[in-house]
Design a protein around this nucleic acid. Structure first.
Lengths: 104, 104
DNA sequence: TTAATGTTTTGTTATATTGCAAAATGACGA
DNA sequence: TCGTCATTTTGCAATATAACAAAACATTAA
């Protein structure tokens, strides 16, 4: 494996990792419809401000969302427009895979 | 958030988590072309047998791969046929998102 | 300038993940 | 049956992640 190939996998893995927490997935799906500010996310998630802020920073660092400070508020929105497709694709694919097992 | 909705997110997150490690992504991409037995994966990854075995069990539990014991060997192959699309979609989407930043 | 509001950062604790080595299992061949 | 080969499981140490509370920051309002 070349160094470049290794880097590619590490980068991909990091992006998947950013999506590997229920709260972060909730955030991503919630802002698919349009930007939201932090306190709306805190409300919806019922988590501490600091916790939500950290989740947001993980998603931001992964290039999945971006923020926009306006006045006192910080608004977050989707940056990687593949998210809707991505989540739908995985959900459907896994649903089918489970169906084959007769689980659902 | 309903209990069912919570479960859906947890399940999705778990699947993303299974894909959030470079070694596991390498395995998934490696067997996209066809099944492989464990020692081939160990060779390609340059990791301990026990380590590779654990990565395989994570992927299997997530419903991403499945195994087939034949003789002394255990062969692994892709079970969730969305994997190629999924990885390609994320890779492309993130590449674009980074391009906008002028990183690449 | 001060106070209040919205958000991020830091410190801490609990839990989860990763990787290896060694032991255990399972299947085949002698 | 016994040994060997391929793989998995277990036990352990190191590191990473998650959550909260408290402190720090930044922006607007008074």
């Amino acid at each position: 494996m070349t160094r470049k190939e290794k880097q590619r996998l590490e980068y991909l893995a990091q992006t998947f990792k950013a999506l590997s927490h229920p709260a972060r997935l909730w955030i991503v799906e919630f802002i698919l419809d349009g930007e939201r500010c932090v306190h709306e996310l805190v409300e919806g998630l019922d988590l501490n401000f600091s916790t939500v802020s950290q989740h947001l920073s993980v998603l931001k660092q992964a290039g999945i969302i971006e923020d926009d400070k306006r006045g006192k508020n910080v608004y977050y929105r989707i940056k990687a427009d593949c998210m809707k497709t991505l989540i739908g694709c995985l959900e459907e694919g896994i649903r089918k895979s489970r169906y084959e097992d007769g689980i659902t």
